[in-house]
Every structure is written in C-alpha cells, then in structure tokens.
Lab assay of single mutants.
Amino acid sequence: MASQGTKRSYEQMETDGERQNATEIRASVGKMIDGIGRFYIQMCTELKLSDYEGRLIQNSLTIERMVLSAFDERRNKYLEEHPSAGKDPKKTGGPIYKRVDRKWMRELVLYDKEEIRRIWRQANNGDDATAGLTHMMIWHSNLNDTTYQRTRALVRTGMDPRMCSLMQGSTLPRRSGAAGAAVKGVGTMVMELIRMIKRGINDRNFWRGENGRKTRSAYERMCNILKGKFQTAAQRAMMDQVRESRNPGNAEIEDLIFLARSALILRGSVAHKSCLPACVYGPAVASGYDFEKEGYSLVGIDPFKLLQNSQVYSLIRPNENPAHKSQLVWMACNSAAFEDLRVLSFIRGTKVSPRGKLSTRGVQIASNENMDAMESSTLELRSRYWAIRTRSGGNTNQQRASAGQISVQPAFSVQRNLPFDKPTIMAAFTGNTEGRTSDMRAEIIRMMEGAKPEEMSFQGRGVFELSDERAANPIVPSFDMSNEGSYFFGDNAEEYDN
C-alpha cells in the first residue's frame, strides 16, 4: 500500500510504541512475548500442572481467558453494579484439565481477579502490559475465525453469508486497541457500523446529549479505520460520505453494504499476525530463551520457528480426527482463516481442507461434555516452508469459486491468482447506482469489472525454506488448481455463540 510509510507498523501498534527502528520493534515485541511466557509459567505453578498438562491447549485457553477477564475493567465495573446470582464479580476462573488415573478430569478453578492481575503485572515488570493482553485477544479471535462461520451475524446486519472472507476479527472485544483495529476485516468494521446506525434509528437519543457526542466521535473513528483499509480513492470518498452524514440511517447502511461487497474484489488491507497460545510461549521462556534479547516478529519467520520446536497437546472428542484438529489450530496460529487453501497447503506441506470436510468441533470443551471418553493427542503445528504475512489485500483475480465463501483475504505475501467468483459478486451490483453516491458507485463498479483474471497478485513473492531466515531465496510455489480455494466452501461450520 502506498501510504505504508505514514502508518505505524503493526509491531508498533502491538507494543504501543512511538516510531521505533526494526531492532527496537523486535525487542519490544519480544518483551511482550516474554511477559506472556513468564505469566503462563507462574500460572502453571499456581495450578500445580504437570509439564504435559501445561502444554494442553484447553488449559492455555482457560488461563488466557482468566487474565483477560481480570483486566476487563468495563465488564468488571458492570458486574459490580449489576450483581447477578451466583456470579462473584471479583473472581474469575474456568475449567482446568488434569490427568488422573490414566483419565482426563475437569476441575473448575476460581481465583481472585486481583490475584491474577498481581501475577500478570509481576510477570511483566510491574506494568499492565496491555500489548500482551491484546495479543491474547487476537489469538482467540484468530481461533474463532478458523472455527466458526459468522453466517447468522452477517444475515442479521443485512449482509450476504458468502462475504465471510471479510469477517476477520469479528469476535475481537471493543477494547483491543490499535492492534485489534489493524486485524479487523472490512466486513467486521461494516458490521460494527451498521449495528451502531441501527441503534440510532431505533433509539432517538442515541446521537443526542453528552453521551451522543461520545457516540458520534466513536462512529467517526470507526469510519476512519474502515476508510484506511480501502485502497481505492472511490471507496475512500464513499467512506467520507458515510462519516460526514448528519443523521446516519438506511442510506448509510446501503452504502456500507455496497462497500463491503466491493471489497470482495477491490480488497481492503487487513493486517495478519501470528499470535500463538500462551502454552507455546511459556515452555520456550522456561527453556531459557530470551525473546527480548533475541527479538521477535509476528509477521516473519519467528512464529514458524517457534511452532517448529513446540509440543502442544489437545483434548480430542471420541469421533474427532486429531489431524483435522491440528489443521484448525495451525490455521489459527498463522492467522489464515480466509487465505486461499492452495497457498496454505503449499506452505504447510500437507493438504489443507475446507472447514466442512474437517471432523472436528471447536477447541474448547463445553462444561456439560462427558470427560470419560476424552483422549488427548499432539497437535501437528509444523510447516514445510515459511512466508511473510501481508497486510495488503493483493490485486484481484477471477477463479472458480464456491457456493460458500466467494473470495479470499490473503494472509501471506505469496504470488498467486486470487480466487473470487466474479459473476456471483457482480450480480449483486445491478441497477442500484442512484442517489448521492452514484458517481462513486459507478466508478467502483467500473474498477471491479476491469479486474483481470490473468493478473498475478504479489508478483514474484515466494515462500522460503525454514533454514532461509533472511528470506534470501524465494520459492514461487505451484498450486494444484483442481483443489478448492475457499475454506468455508459450501460450508456447515458451527455458528459462533458468545
């Protein structure tokens, strides 16, 4: 993207840094990872977990959730003011799984939030270390993106479920800051804005008074975040219109849905970061690795190297396929839920299948599930090659597409044709070009129609051997075009429920 120079890199967003050079960025990201790792080690000690239990991804998720809940100030305040039966607002906890007599047992633990905050700050040299908290939120978000298709949420806001490739980060909490905003897809931002506008339509006082002023500035800020994701002048001009509207209503909703559809071809720039579970960072720190000293990046080879040398386990339900569970977590670790499966298959070195073909449910185990038949197995999170994460949407291309997802959002900077089903997408653009945004709409449609099938995206960008740390010898991959490109292809993934 041309304006790259004016933006802070995501590592800076990730670490609240002012302008830093590459070495400083690597050190501050490393410091953040160190903090998460030290916190995780301490929690495993508190909970008396064995090494194996500490490497269980379900335990990692519970521990991450506990610290996120302990620092969720708004919710904590709300819980104190609106006490609900049987919930102690000062405590947080969740299921911890232990191996007892050759069987997995679930144990519900409860801790004072104050105590968890103390352990977290102690692991982070006394700081609140917001960057580390956001990092864990993005890992949870990436896992949700890989596990669930947001059909219901899309339909509720009037969008087409086939636009799911635009929904990265749709389950990120509001408090995820600049680093969170960077990884949100165009569809996620559109959905947040539509929800806001709908509230304004239904509630006369939404934009009024002292609160209304705050609401208005939040609305304009979200519009600017979305505008910054678009790469064409016409899309940005249309966002200006939406932002400046005196009284946002149905016309703005129409414009936003139009823009979301246009992003299936004229893709937005959305950041991709490899955020790993805390149970990967903990053992690495415990083994003596100093992330701050060595430096770390979320968008280069580092996460690949770390996963190459990590042992992570997962509980497996009786009829689940461990290899499929591994694929789910591998995609989440690489922030690749909406990437082209052919690119992923090449990088991973084994075939990556669409969601609907995987015999696996989510990673988390519900409290009512029976533990008797639970097994555990090693997650295979290694890769054959590594590639640089991208934040450009890439230019655009036609490809055989599917009944489910009709476009992709690249996660890796790797040369390819970008699949999208042009006739299906263009069919949504018939007729409606009147109104105050008509010239911009016409211009956007013209650009979409001009998108050429034979153009290559990320020209000359390749993948790298894991021994090639400096990215000196790019390998331009070859793809098996007979395979499906979309992950949520004609899909039956479970729906995400809060």
Rank of each mutant, 00 (worst) to 15 (best):
V352I: 13
F420T: 15
G180E: 08
I41Q: 13
I425R: 00
R195L: 05
T390H: 09
Q168P: 12
T437R: 01
I225T: 08
L315W: 06
D16I: 05
G362I: 04
A85D: 00
P318I: 10
G404S: 14
D255S: 06
D340S: 15
I25C: 00
Q364H: 10
G490I: 01
R470E: 00
T437I: 06
E64C: 10
T360I: 04
G35Y: 09
G212D: 11
I96L: 15
R118E: 13
A451K: 08
R342T: 06
Y385L: 05
T147K: 06
F346S: 10
V183W: 00
L466R: 00
F291K: 13
F338V: 09
E434C: 08
D480N: 10
A336H: 02
C333S: 14
R26C: 01
R261Y: 04
G5D: 01
G94C: 08
R38F: 09
K452T: 09
C279G: 13
D480L: 02
G431K: 02
D421F: 04
A278F: 11
M136A: 12
D203V: 04
A442N: 14
G228C: 04
H140N: 12
Y52E: 13
N21P: 13
I347H: 06
A401Y: 04
E454I: 12
S84W: 12
L328F: 07
V29I: 15
N473Y: 00
A442D: 01
S467E: 10
A153H: 03
K229F: 13
M456T: 06
S314T: 13
R152H: 12
Q168F: 08
R152K: 14
L133M: 13
I316V: 13
K273T: 06
R236T: 11
T433C: 09
P89N: 05
Y296W: 05
V463M: 10
M32H: 05
G180A: 10
S297I: 07
P423W: 01
S245L: 04
E18D: 14
M447F: 15
A337N: 10
D72C: 12
A27E: 04
T62M: 01
T6A: 00
G169P: 04
G485D: 02
F258E: 09
S245W: 02
D340P: 02
A442L: 13
K422Y: 09
Y281E: 14
G177Q: 04
G158A: 12
R65F: 07
Y313D: 06
F230G: 01
N498K: 15
Y111I: 10
M32N: 15
N432T: 11
M191S: 06
S50T: 12
S141I: 10
N76W: 15
S165C: 13
A260E: 04
K31G: 14
E320P: 02
K91N: 08
C333R: 00
S217D: 00
A471D: 03
T45N: 13
S84Y: 00
A153R: 07
R175A: 05
V408S: 12
H82V: 08
M331F: 06
T171D: 14
R55C: 12
G209V: 11
R162Q: 05
R102T: 04
V280D: 00
I265H: 02
G37Q: 05
T15S: 08
P161F: 01
S141P: 12
F464L: 04
G30S: 10
S60D: 05
P173F: 03
L133Q: 08
V329N: 06
S457T: 06
K325L: 01
R162D: 04
G249R: 12
I194K: 09
K305G: 11
A22G: 03
E244D: 15
N224P: 06
M13W: 07
M189W: 10
S269K: 07
A403W: 00
V299E: 06
R106H: 08
I57K: 07
M1Q: 10
R416V: 02
S438I: 00
V363N: 04
M1D: 11
R446M: 10
N250R: 03
E443Y: 03
G282Q: 08
I116S: 01
E320H: 08
E292G: 13
S176R: 05
F291T: 01
N125P: 03
D290L: 05
A442G: 14
E210Q: 08
R174T: 12
V67S: 11
Q415S: 15
Q415C: 01
A251Q: 03
A22I: 03
S457R: 04
S297N: 02
T130C: 14
E495D: 14
K422M: 13
E46C: 13
R461V: 02
F230P: 02
M105F: 14
S141H: 09
D372A: 09
R236Q: 04
A123K: 01
L306N: 10
S353Q: 07
S310Q: 12
K87C: 07
E18T: 12
E114K: 14
V242Q: 10
G185A: 12
M440P: 02
K422L: 12
A22P: 10
R389M: 02
N142R: 05
V100D: 03
V299Y: 02
S165F: 06
R99E: 09
A332D: 10
Y52H: 06
E252D: 09
I316K: 00
Y296D: 10
K113S: 13
R106W: 10
I388W: 04
D290G: 09
F412I: 14
Y289T: 01
L49E: 02
Y289G: 04
K87R: 11
T134A: 12
D145H: 13
S310E: 02
K357P: 03
K293V: 04
A260P: 08
D34I: 14
I257A: 05
I138S: 05
Q308C: 12
R156C: 07
Q398G: 00
N144T: 10
Y281D: 05
F420D: 01
S3C: 00
Q235S: 07
N125S: 13
K48H: 13
R208G: 03
G35M: 07
D112S: 03
K229A: 09
T396P: 03
E484T: 14
D480T: 10
E369M: 10
E192L: 02
V463Q: 00
L56D: 03
D127H: 12
N202K: 11
L110I: 13
G5S: 15
E115G: 04
E210N: 10
R470D: 04
I265Q: 10
L466G: 00
T396Y: 11
N76K: 11
Q20G: 00
S482E: 10
A411K: 00
G282I: 08
R317P: 06
P474F: 03
V363T: 04
V190E: 01
N142Y: 08
T232M: 11
W386A: 06
A284E: 05
K90V: 11
S438L: 01
R99F: 03
L154S: 03
N224E: 09
L306H: 05
S482Q: 02
V67E: 11
G268V: 15
I96N: 05
G132L: 06
G158W: 01
M238K: 01
L328V: 13
T188G: 11
I36H: 06
S9T: 04
E495W: 06
N224K: 15
I365R: 03
R121P: 01
W139G: 11
V242G: 05
G349V: 11
Q327T: 03
K351I: 01
N397K: 15
L298V: 09
L315T: 11
D497I: 12
A366G: 08
K229N: 14
D372P: 04
Q311N: 15
T15E: 13
C44R: 13
G462V: 00
L172S: 08
D497P: 00
T45F: 05
S274M: 04
E18H: 13
Y52Q: 00
M238L: 15
K98N: 14
T433D: 02
G356A: 09
K31A: 05
I201V: 15
Y10A: 15
P283R: 07
A251T: 06
C333Y: 09
K90I: 14
E244R: 05
R150C: 07
I41G: 13
D112E: 12
Y289A: 13
T350N: 02
R38E: 06
N368H: 10
K103H: 14
R243I: 08
E46Q: 09
W386P: 04
E494Y: 04
M222C: 13
H135T: 06
Y487G: 00
E114G: 08
C223N: 09
M371L: 15
F489W: 02
I406R: 07
A332V: 04
R361S: 04
T360F: 12
